[in-house]
Simulated scan of single mutants.
Amino acid sequence: MSFEPGRLILHRDTHHGRIAFVHPGRVISDDDRGLLIWVARGSTIAVETTLDGRFPRDLPFREWMAADRAPRIAQWCGPGVLRFFPPGENHSVWFFRDDDGEFTGWYVNLEESAVRWDDGDTAGIDVIDQDLDVVVDAGRGWRWKDEDDFAERLGYPDLYWVPDEAAVRAEGRRVIARIEAGEFPFDGTWTDFRPDPSWPTPTELPPGWDRPVVARLGESAARLAE
């Protein structure tokens, strides 16, 4: 399954079959290098909160998991961001910029690789964020991010969706080696990207944005075994 350039698709983060966020992104390219999308400033998004409006980092993890939660419609308020999903790899790379559109650095989001879906009028990718990230400045200096959150959540294996800490860290180290070597996509590719000014900013999510999360191979096998 591939997505045509210019098509608006949905980037969804999912946990245990729940939707943590939905961000609409316009396809820039989809080829053997991977999928590249643009999320515009002001885009209408959905994000899971508690019923009184609190976010995951507003309360301890166990309390968050026990709370009643639901998606809330909001807006992407930061500058527009490119997001790159390399095929079959357990991370994505986000290209951050300032308010003037100038590139400021990369953000490596460690996550289970994207699973694609296409319902015709609405399509997208489902990922599982693994919380630990790598922040990279424009000069390719890097640091780990959210180590405390990652450690806290690993303490609740009955609730957490990350089964293998070592695999997450190994993926991060593989990407860090590319960063330090200046290899693609940390070689300047796409850092001068400018979106087409004629592209409309999504002002609502399309019907089907909350369709069931795509089951992964391991999940599918577990369900068949039940």
Rank of each mutant, 00 (worst) to 15 (best):
R72M: 10
G78N: 14
H11V: 10
R57W: 10
D58E: 14
F55Q: 11
L10S: 03
R7C: 01
D68P: 15
R18G: 11
W64Y: 12
L51M: 11
A74E: 12
L8F: 07
L35S: 03
W64F: 08
C77G: 14
G53D: 12
A70W: 09
H23R: 12
D52L: 01
C77Q: 06
D52W: 00
I9M: 07
G25N: 04
V47K: 10
P60E: 14
G53R: 05
I37P: 02
A40D: 08
I19V: 15
I45K: 02
R54Y: 08
T44S: 12
L59A: 07
R33I: 05
R69L: 13
W76L: 03
C77V: 15
A46W: 00
Q75A: 15
V27D: 01
G34A: 08
T44D: 06
R72E: 09
V27C: 02
R7G: 03
R72F: 09
L36W: 01
R57F: 12
I45Y: 00
D13A: 14
H23G: 13
R41S: 15
L59F: 04
A40T: 02
R54S: 11
H23E: 14
R26W: 05
W76H: 06
A20R: 13
I37Q: 00
R57Q: 14
D13T: 04
A66W: 13
H16T: 06
W38M: 02
A74T: 07
A46P: 01
D32C: 07
A70M: 05
T14K: 11
W76C: 05
W76T: 02
V39W: 06
A40F: 01
R18V: 14
P56W: 03
D58G: 10
F61G: 06
I9R: 01
G78P: 02
I45R: 00
P24G: 05
F61A: 10
G17C: 11
E48G: 05
F55C: 08
G17Q: 10
V47I: 14
R18T: 15
R41I: 07
A40I: 02
R57K: 12
G25Q: 01
R33P: 03
T14M: 11
A40P: 02
A66K: 08
D13V: 04
R41Y: 07
R62F: 15
L51C: 09
R57Y: 08
L8Y: 09
T14P: 00
G78D: 12
G17W: 13
I9D: 02
I45H: 00
R7L: 02
H15Y: 12
L35T: 00
I45V: 14
F21E: 14
A20S: 09
I45W: 01
P71D: 11
G53Y: 03
L8H: 11
G53M: 05
L8W: 13
V22I: 06
A40H: 02
H23S: 15
F61W: 10
I45A: 05
V27I: 02
L59Y: 03
P60Q: 13
D31P: 02
H15F: 11
